[in-house]
Design a protein around this nucleic acid. Structure first.
Length: 865
DNA sequence: CGGATCGAC
DNA sequence: CTATGTCGATCCG
């Protein structure tokens, strides 16, 4: 049994993947081991499980390839990469936009919450929404037993025999969702709904307007049940008659079953807001006034949602969507969390954030990065050079964005969709006729969806999953666009036929079939929806207006970008387009840049003044004086684009030159001597890339900053921080997740020891201590300082590499036979499927079961679909 | 372009 | 008694 050990590992992996390791132990619930054991028993030996193991092996193989590649990276490559990555990082830093207030709203355990609201019977029970085959969501009570979304119901039942599984009522959820949407629209008419229970808002403009609102405009009345059309909710409210004129009266009804810790949360009622009891006894209402800050706005939103729907929501407030989303998770359920709009706050937040929390990083990426020792965003930043060598450009760009705490500040325009598909799972079908008729049905349903959207495409893809959970897709592209059921089916049928014939003596034995249409043409899209024009007008009128003129950048971007890239800018993926348009953005960024560096700007700068500053800076600073981080020569008044060219040249020069040891060391040393290059760039500098330099967080002072400020900040850094208290407040889930994501690994916290000491010892007035070489230097130029640090860092990296004997420079990579060829990107995925064409084993079982396509869908449909 | 893979919910 | 979903986007050969 040579695979016993491996199996054990795999088991753990599987449990991890199923997200079950992060279950919390509760008085009534189960502890982690029990949960894992039960799941294991239920799952072991199933075809599903076997397939999971197989998939996991593939991922492991991928990781192995990656490590192999890593071992062949030379120090020169790494060094060069470091500089190039940092160049981009600097550009990104300059385009950082902190002027938007983005809110992410997330309804708590949405489906389950609706069901509980509608049926008081369920309120004290563990429940889940879904079926025996699959659950969509569970309430918090059930979660204590390890019952979670995406878990099959029959396993959930074993974990929690008392579990009530209710089948989903999507219409109901739609309705509630609509009610919520109506509220959200008051704060951002352009809000972006991600699903029935989740949305992003840009409340920048609302906040601005709100500043002038009278109290009455911010006053809401606490309703006492009678207004709700839903009888049940009245019952809910009257159930707590003792709760009267205080905050508790509007505290969540939903979380009676919340873990006890949650009840320590302070009542989620505006701190600045105050209640005013209405003296008129007949009114029987209290009113509440919300403040004008973002936090208050969000409390107001959540308050209104709860008043209207009797459901609670969690939310996050941050300068961009990525951060907002992460935030909303932090104090869930029924909580909120804000990252203030300054760079330091963002960085503090990001610092220990496990990458898995970041949207876009899923379990596979997490595992791959973990293999590189990357767990947190700081790790991500520290490994940026390596990552740029191991991952595709889009991937490492995303990583860089994440590790800098950057994300989109715009609500996505109605993105042109790229494909539309339908798929269905059913109990085994292997009869040819049934397969065809099923396919036809799918095509017909898909055609309806397509026609609703006025879409036609040229590529039809079928997807087949056999009873062993092996998935295949087969595509075919035709000359003219198709959209009708017949047209699609004609193509899909052929594809299906090929697969049936290919296996011929054996039946296909499918458990899922899907059909997809893609390759939409723009002309068609325009013709039908005139989408582009509409969205163009929308851009003009509803433009999310951050701060006055600054926002024009956004709009201009919209207009200037090529149409394909102007849509679908999930904060995660839009970067490519940013890159290609970078040179155009740079000057438009200028005003913002200026501001984003002014994190510590003089507090009372009037808007006019600010504008003025911006304007002048725009006029005069079109080209700044830059210093090349490689050769350290001043580049005069050239624009960033030119600087980039220069840096590139420098880079290739130095690399040809030689051993980095010889280059980096002398340069950095000479630089470490006192330099005073007072460039007329920004009068304020903020720590840029230095935050994550190993074991330090260096803060560059602004001119106006006093020593007290500094000390305060440094002290704040180490004392029970603002965040950790909030962190403690977070739900059990959350805490557990934190723990579980760190368990199992010799988690070697990249110690941030000495950080405070270092900060405190920072001399004032533009003399900085390099955290790596520990030498003093004097400069006001951020870039210079960073370059210096980076070079020192490179030195360190090189030494580290040497120490580890990973791949000494002289070592010829070719001698390692295993992964020849491909240098640069990860060799992606082994093609295993090709080998697995032999379907069902001996089971001759021609079980022509009734074709009973399982129609229930548990997917969360998005608002606008 | 085709196919597998990833991630979100 | 059984029993593990649906959809869109991206990446790479």
């Amino acid at each position: 049994m040579d695979n016993t050990k491996e199996n054990n590992n795999d088991k753990e992996g599987l449990l991890l993947r199923m997200g079950l390791n992060d279950n919390k132990a509760g008085m009534e619930g189960l502890d982690k081991e029990k949960i894992n054991k039960i799941i294991m028993e239920a799952t072991k030996g199933s075809r599903f499980y076997e397939n999971e193991l197989k998939k996991e092996k593939q991922v492991n193989q991928r990781i192995e390839n990656m490590m192999q590649q890593k071992s062949q990276i030379t120090t020169q490559q790494l060094w060069k990469a470091q500089l190039q990555v940092d160049k981009l990082a600097m550009e990104l830093e300059q385009s950082r936009n902190l002027h938007c207030t983005i809110v992410h709203i997330d309804m708590d355990a949405f489906y389950a919450a609706v069901e509980m609201r509608n049926n008081p019977e369920l309120r004290d029970k563990p429940i889940a929404v879904g079926s025996m085959s699959m659950l969509s969501t569970s309430n918090y009570h059930a979660r204590r037993f390890g019952v979670r979304a995406a878990m099959p119901g029959f396993i959930a039942k074993r974990l929690c025999p008392q579990l009530t599984i209710v089948s989903p009522n999507f219409d109901k959820y739609q309705e509630v969702s609509k009610e919520v949407r109506e509220i959200l629209a008051d704060y951002d008419p352009n809000f972006m709904a991600m699903s029935l229970d989740e949305a992003y808002l840009n409340i920048t403009k609302h906040l601005e307007e709100r500043q002038n609102w009278s109290e009455n405009k911010r006053r809401y009345f606490v309703k006492r049940g009678s207004t709700t059309e839903n009888d049940k909710s009245e019952a809910v409210i009257s159930k707590a008659p003792g709760l009267n004129e205080d905050a508790v009266s509007i505290s969540p009804l939903l979380f009676e079953d919340s873990p006890p810790q949650l009840q320590h949360q302070e009542p989620e009622i505006p701190s600045q807001a105050h209640f005013e009891e209405q003296r008129d006894p007949q009114v029987l209402q209290n009113s509440v006034v919300f403040g004008t800050s973002a936090e208050e706005v969000v409390k107001e939103i959540r308050f209104r949602i709860e008043q209207k729907t009797s459901l609670t929501a969690s939310s996050g407030i941050a300068p961009n969507t990525m951060l907002a989303k992460v935030c909303s998770d932090k104090n869930k359920p029924n909580g909120q969390y804000q990252i203030p709009s300054n760079r330091q706050a963002v960085m503090d937040f990001i610092k220990d954030l496990p990458i898995r929390k970041v949207p876009g990083i899923g379990k596979v990426t997490e595992k791959m990065l973990k293999a590189l020792g990357i767990i947190t965003c700081s790790d991500l930043y520290q490994n940026r050079a390596l990552l740029s060598l191991l991952f595709s450009e889009t991937s490492w760009h995303s990583f860089l964005h994440i590790s800098l705490g950057l994300g989109s500040t715009q609500m996505e325009r109605d993105g042109e969709r790229k494909s539309m598909s339908i798929e269905r799972t059913f109990s085994e079908i292997s009869k040819v006729e049934e397969l065809y008729s099923l396919c036809q049905e799918l095509c017909s349903d898909l055609a309806q969806d397509l026609q609703k959207k006025g879409l036609k495409g040229r590529t039809v893809t079928i997807k087949l999953k056999n009873v062993n959970f092996e998935v295949k897709t087969r595509a075919s592209t035709v000359a003219v666009v198709v959209s009708t059921a017949e047209e699609i089916f004609a193509i899909a049928k052929e594809l299906l036929k090929v697969e049936i014939d290919a296996d011929y003596p054996r039946p296909l034995r499918l458990r899922l079939m899907g059909v997809r249409v893609s390759g939409f043409s723009n002309e068609e899209d325009r013709k039908h929806g005139q989408r582009s024009i509409i969205s163009f007008l929308k851009t003009g009128s509803h433009a999310l207006d951050p701060v006055g003129s600054v926002l024009d950048k956004n709009d201009q971007d919209q207009v200037m970008k090529p149409p394909e890239t102007s849509h679908k800018e999930s904060f995660f993926t839009k970067k490519r387009s940013e890159m290609s348009w970078n040179h155009q953005d740079i000057f438009k960024c200028e005003p913002e840049t200026k501001q984003s560096f002014q994190v510590s700007q003089p507090p009372n700068l009037s808007k006019e003044e600010m504008k003025e500053n911006l304007e002048t800076s725009e006029n005069t600073d079109d080209c700044q004086v830059f210093t090349c981080p490689i050769c350290f020569k001043e580049q005069g008044r050239i624009c960033l684009e030119a600087l980039n060219r220069h840096v590139d040249e420098c880079l290739s020069r130095t690399l040809v030159d030689c051993d980095p040891k010889m280059v980096a060391v002398p340069q950095s040393q000479s630089f470490c001597s006192e330099v005073n290059l007072d460039l007329k760039t920004h009068e304020t500098t903020e720590s840029l890339l230095v935050d994550f330099v190993p074991s330090v967080s260096v803060d560059v002072l602004s001119k106006g900053k006093s020593m007290e400020d500094l000390n305060t900040r440094a002290g704040h850094e180490q004392s029970p921080k603002q965040y950790s208290s909030l962190w403690r407040k977070s739900s059990l889930d959350e805490c557990f997740y934190q723990n579980s994501s760190h368990e199992n690994e010799g988690y070697d916290a990249k110690s941030s020891g000495g950080q405070t000491a270092l900060q405190a010892s920072l001399p004032r007035d533009k003399t900085f201590m390099c955290p790596v070489c520990n030498l003093k230097q004097k400069t006001s130029d951020l870039m210079l300082f960073n370059s210096h640090v980076d070079i020192c860092l490179n030195k360190g990296l090189i030494q580290e590499l040497r120490k580890d004997e990973v791949s000494p420079v002289m070592n010829c990579p070719a001698e390692n036979s295993k992964s020849t060829g491909s240098s640069g990107k990860i060799q992606k995925t082994m093609n295993v499927i090709a080998k697995t064409k032999r379907p069902g084993l001996m089971t001759q079982n021609s079980t022509s079961k009734k074709t009973k396509p399982n129609n229930s869908k548990y997917t969360i449909d998005s608002f606008f679909k």
